[in-house]
């Protein structure tokens, strides 16, 4: 069956809406949502709920302690994580926790790319004075979610995309040709289906094309530039074999002078060391558990 991109696009969205081939949510998510909506619940109560689930607790603490957030001291309790990361970020991490494992398992290069972008986004967000750098880092972590969905849920199409990219086609163009939709839109579509906050959804949607957001231009510009800087650094891999195109607008939106970027590289480097050790640790844990 050969569908044109528009028909294909509809089919992709239908599949995504049903979450076909994607991990199910941890059962805790629904109760957590209710509790977060209820203004009377305290951080202590939310922590208590999360701690009932040992697997989720372990995952959350592991992520909270990763270098992309860069807390100097160990985050040892859920309550601590809630206070440092904010309730919303912790919720996002719980909802997406199984995705991270899939990224790591399926494509270590993309995993390294994602955590690299998260780390760089945090540094840039702080530099330009965005008010929630942890949330921006979390968006960085998820920015290529659509890519892993392509790989896991649309295997055959993904192979075609890879083939086109190998022959020199721009990755975004290749995705649109094969699936009728690119990874930025797939990722944001799924995140919206999961009820994640708008700021994250729109930022992921616009991370290759800043025109796609009005409200969260700065956030999107941070992710866009981080994506490029991590490619320049050569940390991890993505579909881009060369440096992806830079949108000039990103520098304007962030009011960043190019010469400041050297300092960003200096700030980033120690974090990348930590991330390598983190990834090594994950590898050992996976080997033990498999």
């Amino acid at each position: 069956m050969n569908l044109n991109p528009l028909e294909k696009r509809k089919l992709v969205k239908k599949k995504l809406r049903k979450l076909e081939g994607l991990p199910t949510f941890p059962p805790i998510v629904q109760r957590l949502n209710l509790m977060i909506e209820d203004e009377d619940s305290s951080i202590y109560q939310i922590a208590e709920l999360i701690e009932k689930d040992q697997v989720i607790t372990t995952k959350i603490l592991k992520l909270a302690n990763s270098a992309f957030y860069g807390f100097p001291k160990k985050v040892s309790t859920v309550q601590n994580a809630l206070m440092l990361l904010g309730v919303n970020v912790v919720k996002v991490l719980i909802v997406t926790s199984s995705i991270f494992e899939i990224i790591y398992r399926e494509d270590v290069g993309l995993w390294e790319h994602s955590i690299g972008v998260a780390s760089c986004s945090k540094i840039l967000a702080e530099r330009v004075g965005l008010k929630d750098p942890q949330e921006v880092a979390t968006t960085g972590l998820l920015h290529d979610l659509g890519r892993i969905v392509q790989r896991v849920t649309f295997k055959e199409d993904y192979k075609k995309i890879l083939e086109l990219v190998k022959n020199g086609k721009d990755p975004l163009q290749a995705e649109k040709e094969v699936l009728g939709i690119d990874h930025a839109e797939i990722g944001s579509f799924l995140m919206r289906t999961w009820n994640l906050p708008d700021r994250l959804v729109e930022t992921v949607d616009a991370h290759h094309d800043l025109k796609r957001t009005k409200k969260f231009k700065k956030e999107a510009a941070v992710i866009h530039l981080s994506d490029i800087l991590i490619h320049v650094r050569g940390y991890g891999t993505s579909l881009y074999q060369k440096i992806p195109p830079l949108q000039q607008e990103a520098l304007k939106v962030l009011k960043l002078n190019l010469f400041e970027i050297k300092d960003i590289f200096f700030k980033l480097e120690p974090r990348l060391y930590e991330l390598k050790f983190f990834t090594e640790e994950l590898r050992r844990e996976m080997e033990v558990s498999s």
Partner: peptide, 27 residues
């Protein structure tokens, strides 16, 4: 590092990107 950097920048002509490359090399 420098060899791989050149490879990643093959065919790139955007002036801002080339400036970022220069800064990264300095780093």
């Amino acid at each position: 590092e420098l060899k791989e950097l050149e490879k990643r920048f093959e065919g790139i002509t955007d002036e801002n990107l080339l400036e970022i490359k220069r800064l990264f090399k300095e780093f």
